[in-house]
Each structure stands twice: as structure tokens, then as C-alpha cells.
């Protein structure tokens, strides 16, 4: 699963030659599928994209994405989670890995595969074996105290998205407080405020995804460069130690 980097020993860098896998998790109804659809629409012309949905009960999410035609049908795969959405993204990721690998086998080199979790609770977290980066999606109508309550998703996701900001005045949610509470538990990791109603292309999240892909690309490039360098070094060393004729 790629090299271990000193600055973050827990981060699995994407192995060269495979797509970056982006997990999108969050509670039921927070807007995971709508965000996935928005990212597909915004990024599909610049990236080779595919999506795996994890539906709780039906293939509703995959059907929605297909109906909306955000991607061709054969780039959308649905995984059933046996009543345990967090198991399928964390404890036993095999069905999702299977779906991801099947998409890569079908389409060759992809840039990005989005794995959308089934709606879950605040402790849900993607395994590093499945997702290289992960987004946790909350919505303002779910209660503005949710960031303060924390939980693995809110605290540890690479990007926290606070969605449906257009509803904040209607439900009496305090966006500033949500931002402050999130910042307190997130140790500097970014938070994005989105309203897919007002900004349907999710520009804040798309920009973050582009930056992540750039960073992953640079890491892979550095790794390749380092390997070439190491090899040259080894060659030179072996020449230096080679017995002279």
C-alpha cells in the first residue's frame, strides 16, 4: 500500500498505477449522494472517474446516480452491506475492494474512485486499506451541536463538509459555532461549508479533491524519483566494491 511517510505514518499513499480512492461518509440524509453526484458532474470532464455506492437497504443511491446520468452506468457499482454500513467500509472492506478492483479491471487506469458509505453514525470511519482520503459530510439541519460532539468521522476525516448551509437560518443553526467546534477537534484539518442548492457544482469540495490528487501525484512522482536515485546509488556502490580485474 505505498510507502510510509515520515510526516504521517498512518497515511497510505496510493500505490502507483491505481486510482486514488476517496471515501465519502456521514449520517443518513446529510447529502453524501448529492455531493457524490455534484463531484461527478464537476470532475468527469477532467478526470477518469468511477463510483462505488454502499446502500443500506436498496440500490437507491446507485439508481439515483444512474438516473441522474452523472456517469455512464458501467462506472457505478453498488455494494450491499448486510445491515452494517460501517463494517463494509472499516472492519471488512472486501466487498468494496472487490467492487473497486472490478471497476479498474473494466476501465483500465482511473484517476479517482469515490466510495460512498451507507448512512451511518458519527463513529464511522473508512479503513486506510479502502480509502486513501476521506470526507465526512454533516448537514446543518442535523443539529449544530454535532461538531462539538465529535466522533471519529468529524475529528479524523481529511475534509469535513458542513452541508445545506442555506438551511441554517431556517433551522436556527449557528454556522460560526459549528466551524469553531469542528476546528477544535480537527487539529487543523480543513472544513468546507457547502450548499448544493446554491452552488450545485460543489466548488469548495472539488477544489480540495483536485489538490489532493495533485499531492498524491507529486508523492508518487517523488517516490519514483527516490527509487531511481536509490538504484543508481546501489549501482554505484556495487561498482565501487566490485573486485577489479
Amino acid at each position: 500500500m505505498g510507502a510510509v511517510h515520515d510526516h504521517d505514518p498512518h497515511r497510505a499513499a496510493p500505490a502507483r498505477g491505481r486510482a486514488l480512492r476517496l471515501g465519502i461518509g456521514g449520517p443518513v440524509g446529510s447529502g453524501k449522494t448529492a455531493l457524490t453526484a455534484a463531484l461527478c458532474r464537476t470532475l468527469r470532464d477532467e478526470l477518469e472517474l468511477a463510483v462505488v455506492t454502499n446502500d443500506i437497504y436498496t440500490t437507491e443511491d446507485a439508481d439515483f446516480l444512474r438516473r441522474e446520468a452523472v456517469l455512464p452506468d458501467d462506472r457505478i457499482a453498488a455494494v450491499r452491506t448486510g445491515a452494517c454500513p460501517h463494517t463494509a467500509i472499516r472492519d471488512d472492506i472486501s466487498a468494496n475492494l472487490d467492487a473497486v478492483e472490478a471497476l479498474e479491471a473494466r476501465h483500465g487506469r482511473l484517476d479517482l474512485i469515490i466510495v460512498e458509505s451507507g448512512g451511518d453514525n458519527l463513529t464511522a470511519l473508512f479503513s486506510r486499506g479502502l480509502a486513501d482520503r476521506q470526507i465526512f459530510v454533516l448537514d446543518v439541519a442535523g443539529g449544530d451541536d454535532v461538531p462539538r460532539k465529535g466522533g471519529l468521522g468529524v475529528a479524523a476525516a481529511d475534509l469535513l463538509v458542513i452541508n445545506k448551509t442555506d438551511l441554517a437560518p431556517l433551522v436556527g443553526s449557528d454556522l460560526d459555532m459549528m466551524g469553531r467546534d469542528a476546528a477544535r477537534v480537527r487539529d487543523g484539518r480543513p472544513v468546507a461549508f457547502t450548499s448544493l442548492r446554491e452552488r450545485p457544482s460543489a466548488p469548495e469540495v472539488a477544489a480540495w479533491v483536485r489538490a489532493v490528487l495533485r499531492e498524491a501525484h507529486e508523492e508518487a512522482h517523488e517516490e519514483a524519483h527516490q527509487e531511481v536515485h536509490d538504484e543508481a546509488h546501489r549501482d554505484a556502490a556495487s561498482r565501487a566494491h566490485a573486485p577489479t580485474a
Partner: peptide
């Protein structure tokens, strides 16, 4: 049953 081999998604 905690073996990560996909069994949790099947009900037999």
C-alpha cells in the same frame, strides 16, 4: 466471524 472475508454481507 471477524475474519475480514466478506461474510457479514451474506445471510446464507
Amino acid at each position: 466471524s471477524r475474519l475480514p472475508a466478506g461474510g457479514h454481507a451474506h445471510s446464507g
